[in-house]
Design a protein around this nucleic acid. Structure first.
Lengths: 244, 244
DNA sequence: AAGTGGTCTAGACCACAGA
DNA sequence: CTGTGGTCTAGACCACTTT
């Protein structure tokens, strides 16, 4: 091959894409079956293993369900409901088609409170980067965000914090964030929050506390966030526990 | 077949189990690599495809990570953090070690509001079972729950609703609940809610709306729930999106 | 009995990482 | 360069569902 072309995707991915498009375009309707794996192998001129690999992807995507002795059943024409994933507020709103800006009110190293120290599993003398940001939708403030990141994360107070914080953390560590835990409560806005969020003190706000972890369960971020509930609601899609 | 024996698990599952036990027992430590696929194939006396199938399972479980040109890296010795799962309030509190009782305030078939009809994707003339329940912790009311279940679910108003509703639904359908979507907001308690929850009107409460679906995205339950945030906080563990 | 997906083999070539 | 995981093939036999 002397051609210097964009490398072709693996065969099984190509097949998966084709089948997926056919399903999404209604060529195979719900409750109908795909052609048999042998037939697909013939018509795509690939081995059956390749077809199985492609179908396996469609199963993960929730499009089809394999039934031994019957066939490969189409169970959905749209991709499976996306399961809950951890997103920063910037990304979350991005998904909803809203653009948001962060205004940095404070960015400095500080001695963590005992609560923050416990959440981040810090040693006694470790400092944290304390970040206070306000987020707006269409120039209306809707969230006051307190973020705490261990000093060891190597993020400087001088960085640009108007974008997604997660991106900075992931870049700094070279490691992706593994998972997070959210705790959500409702309470009345405190005076300082009310002032910034432009609401009356005591107005019910969503109060989110999140701890984010790296892959090896090492905490990298603790966030406390007060949000105007009239501008933002917390949404999550939950899979039913599969008794693994 | 005259033998009534437990059928042996597929080879790749056996291999996966063996490797998993070895990882969990510390035989392979974090950041070390598994033997190469070729070596594993030799030592297990199976084909490399079988080994790859086994390893693929370990990847899903979050135990290892395959790195082209390097090897199969062990990244965890405990199974991946359990992801968020859908639980009814009864189950949820049970996990937290609290026992709760439900007091049924209302259980009757009713004409659904347009919102409920939309959420449950009902036909125009379908009725719903409307259930109003109050939940208590240590005899203090903490949640006022409005549940709506399609009449077609086949649940009678005379059932025992003091336990988990999900159990009734799953038993009635013989099908498990597939997933759910929660929307969480904060707002002040309405007069009727405040009365039942024994708080002042306007006190901030968590307001949860949940739609639960069967496997094929058929809605089976819509819930609106006002909760005292001083007695209950909403917790969820979120996996970071894996860019599939 | 025929046909389905589920499993398995024994090869092969590739792109990539590290010495 | 060697060795790794990633992909792919052309078969094979099995348990299962349906006819």
């Amino acid at each position: 091959m002397s051609e210097a072309q964009a490398p072709a995707a693996p065969l099984y991915q190509q097949v998966r894409t084709v089948l997926r498009r056919q399903i999404e375009s209604g060529q195979y309707s719900v409750n109908s079956t795909l052609p048999t794996e042998h037939d697909l192998a013939r018509s795509f001129s690939v081995s059956r293993a390749t077809i199985r690999s492609a179908i396996s992807g469609l199963v993960s995507d929730g499009f089809v369900k394999a039934q031994p002795g019957v066939g490969t059943l189409v169970i959905r024409t749209r991709p499976q409901t996306r399961t809950a994933t951890l997103r920063g507020l910037t990304e979350d709103l991005g998904v909803k088609g809203l653009t948001t800006r962060a205004v940095v009110l404070k960015a400095e190293f500080a001695i963590p409170s005992p609560l923050v120290r416990a959440r981040l599993e810090l040693f006694a003398d470790e400092r944290v980067l304390h970040l206070v940001r306000m987020r707006t939708i269409a120039s209306t403030p809707f969230a006051l965000v307190n973020s705490y990141v261990p000093e060891s994360a190597g993020i400087s107070p001088d960085e640009d914090f108007t974008g997604p914080l997660y991106a900075l953390i992931e870049r700094s560590h070279g490691l992706p964030i593994g998972h997070g835990e959210d705790i959500i409560a409702a309470r009345g806005a405190r005076a300082d929050e009310a002032d910034i969020l432009q609401i009356a003190p005591g107005t019910p706000v969503l109060y989110l506390r999140r701890t984010a972890y790296l892959e090896h369960d090492k905490p990298v971020e603790y966030v406390e966030c007060a949000m105007r509930s009239d501008l933002y609601e917390y949404c999550v899609t939950l899979p039913r526990s599969q008794n693994v």
